[in-house]
């Protein structure tokens, strides 16, 4: 690969896919987090961290266009999110919510194929390309073996992977995940983050996930967004460890951040 090509690839990977401008989010008139100016760039896996009730889900829902911002803008590449229809939005952002949905009697394959809805015609008929995308998404998440099983018969971890496969099949530049690691044990959390990081890198996606699992997030994510009181702090995992911001955020939580080991200890 020549120098020019590598440079193009590099800039492509760093292209901001989602940008916020002086965004304030919350319910009613009172903002939970205000004046957010951040970017999600192609190829990076970003963790959103904060205490319970701090506004993680509200921020994710606002970025996904499901919740109106109090003020400010969310831009997808260059177009403002609030001017987009639901159908246009669905081609840019895929969303994975926390917990498993009551999906009626849908088998895994049908459920993952719902992710193709933004791209299919009026009756949702799947083309060969759609089916290829569905198969690829199931392959990537390792759920192909239970394509014909119902969601109710899967474990929490398997169900979580099904919903992630659905988001992958949606084939969007941005993927937002609300607590995808809840209910997963350490092995599955690490496996999931590795999968998301690889997807971000190989397909130049921007992946943002909220989590309570600081350790795993700091180890495996490229960048961290920290909800610090009313503001959003952004930086690399290394910066988060060394800058003291983690101590401030979790000071009242009975946790002490130990810079030497880079991990938390009970205070």
């Amino acid at each position: 690969m020549g120098a020019v090509e590598r440079k193009t690839l590099g800039t492509h990977r760093m292209k901001p896919l989602l940008t916020t401008r002086s965004l304030s989010v919350g319910h009613g008139a009172l903002p939970l987090i205000s004046d957010i100016n951040c970017e999600l760039r192609a190829g990076e896996l970003v963790a959103l961290i904060g205490v319970n009730g701090g506004g993680k889900s509200t921020l994710l829902n606002t970025l996904a266009g499901l919740h109106a911002p109090i003020s400010g803008d969310v831009l997808l590449e260059d177009s403002p999110l609030r001017q987009m229809s639901a159908a246009q939005r669905a081609r840019h952002i895929a969303l994975v919510l926390t917990g498993r949905p009551q999906a009626g009697l849908l088998d895994v394959h049908t459920l993952v194929a719902l992710g193709r809805q933004p791209w299919t015609g009026h009756f949702g008929r799947l083309s060969a390309e759609d089916l290829r995308q569905v198969d690829a998404a199931m392959e990537a998440t390792g759920i192909a073996p239970f394509a014909n099983r119902s969601l109710q018969h899967l474990s929490d971890g398997e169900a979580q992977r099904v919903m992630i496969a659905r988001a992958l099949a949606q084939d969007t530049p941005v993927i937002l995940l609300d607590e995808p690691m809840a209910f997963l044990d350490l092995v599955h959390r690490v496996r999931l983050l590795r999968l998301l990081r690889e997807l971000a890198r190989t397909r130049s996606k921007a992946v943002l996930l909220s989590t309570h699992d600081l350790q795993t997030a700091l180890d495996l994510c490229d960048r961290v967004l920290l909800i610090h009181g009313n503001a959003l702090w952004s930086g690399s995992a290394q910066e988060a460890r060394s800058s003291g911001v983690l101590q401030e955020v979790f000071a009242g939580e009975g946790l002490r951040f130990d810079p030497a080991s880079g991990s938390f200890r009970p205070a």
Binding site: L114, Q117, G124
Partner: peptide, 17 residues
């Protein structure tokens, strides 16, 4: 079909709920 997953998922799949 999208509504089977609930309003939030349906909206994120492009359905004007």
């Amino acid at each position: 079909n999208a509504l089977l997953l609930g309003d939030a998922y349906a909206s994120s799949l492009g359905v004007p709920v």
